[in-house]
Design a protein around this nucleic acid. Structure first.
Lengths: 209, 209
DNA sequence: TTACAATTGTTAATTTTTTCACATGACTTT
DNA sequence: AAAGTCATGTGAAAAAATTAACAATTGTAA
């Protein structure tokens, strides 16, 4: 695929645009200008046009962007106009909450397998999925079409989980564990930590005085 | 407080440093150089030194950084060396999961009140907290020391929740709802959306071919 | 006690990202 | 069909962030 190097920040914003555009669509808005969209996203209008320009020309000069079309175009550009098969490793409190979180499936990320190394958890059914021993991971990849791994283990087991995912041939990982992981550079890792956002807010509120 | 404008990206990285340093401390490491820390965080060593320089001089030349001290210094710089009182608005599936998530309290973010406008939910006890009508929010702020608001409503109710929080005098908001919100500019808002991370991974995996 | 090795804090150079400005194209109205 | 308005796409300018380079400082070993 095209490998003009697209800023990571652009990708994040595209996700925001989808969110806001979806809201506009819900409200019955059919066409939107970069200026209006920008205001709703709290960014600069040029920014939006620049971001979109990496992927093509989606607007109509003098008119703006057709909301429905633009959503489809951005989703296609991001590669999220299809369903992705996901594997979750680590069925603790967080893991269970993620398995029960409906939003993922709605947005095209289908969790099709849950793994854990704890014998007491293996065999348990969580949100319709049987918890399976992590060693079985590799053998399920093709069968279930697993592409993206989700790590929700305690920090000390995150690296091991990552190893299993890499070994299984998965190319993308979303890591909810409280630890950095080392993986071959062709593997994409995204770290999720809610607390970071709280830190950020705390810092800003503290400095505001 | 000091208002040299510190990049938002720096704040994010500081949170990562804390995470990694905490792991090092757990492993018994007492001193670390910017180079070693950088490798563990997947960033440039200069980056770390630069980030820290915004807040002071925390290292010893020729030696490195004392892990325990550095954690404390960063936490102090971020303003997270104390407990913050939080209010959650929106007791749906996500709200319940957040209320039950122990990690927040462990990291100094204490959820002390849960609000919802649904009469069927009011009075219910979730994770030891009674769900209260959102209209009561303002009256509880001082009593409970509420400083940061958490929004976990459906998208169409996020703005109303934000209004209540602002009205109540809270200065920081962490928004888990699928919607942007408009607030006065002195209020800090952080948006949390797991799906964004999945989009990012999906994009990278797609473009890797 | 002096030279050496290590590693910070910081200034300068480079790279990346954001914003501005405007020519270009599309629709509308007269 | 011509003129006017609007808003995109894009190249150039500005701003911001990252990286490199090095002088300053600490500890260590000869």
């Amino acid at each position: 695929m095209k490998t003009q190097n697209i800023p990571k920040a652009t990708i994040k914003r595209l996700a925001v645009y989808i969110q806001v555009l979806t809201g506009l669509k819900r409200d019955g808005v059919e066409v939107v200008s970069s200026e209006k969209l920008a205001r709703a996203c709290s960014v600069n209008p040029s920014q939006i046009r620049k971001d979109l320009a990496y992927f093509g020309e989606f607007g109509v000069r003098g008119v703006g962007y057709y909301v429905h079309e633009l959503i489809a175009s951005i989703k296609h550009s991001l590669g999220v106009d299809r369903v992705w098969g996901c594997a979750l490793v680590g069925v603790g409190n967080l893991g269970r909450a993620l398995l029960r979180h409906k939003e993922f499936a709605l947005r095209g990320f289908s969790i099709r397998a849950a793994f854990d190394c704890d014998p007491y958890k293996i065999g348990e059914i969580v949100s319709g999925l049987e918890v399976v021993c992590t060693r079985q991971l590799k053998s399920r990849v093709d069968e279930l079409g697993l592409e993206i791994g989700i790590i929700s283990t305690p920090p000390e087991r995150a690296q091991r989980a990552a190893n299993y995912l890499v070994e299984g041939g998965l190319k993308g990982i979303v890591n909810f564990a409280q630890a950095r992981i080392q993986v071959p550079k062709e593997i994409t890792v995204e770290y999720v930590d809610f607390t970071h956002h709280f830190y950020s807010v705390a810092f800003n509120v503290s400095s505001a005085d």
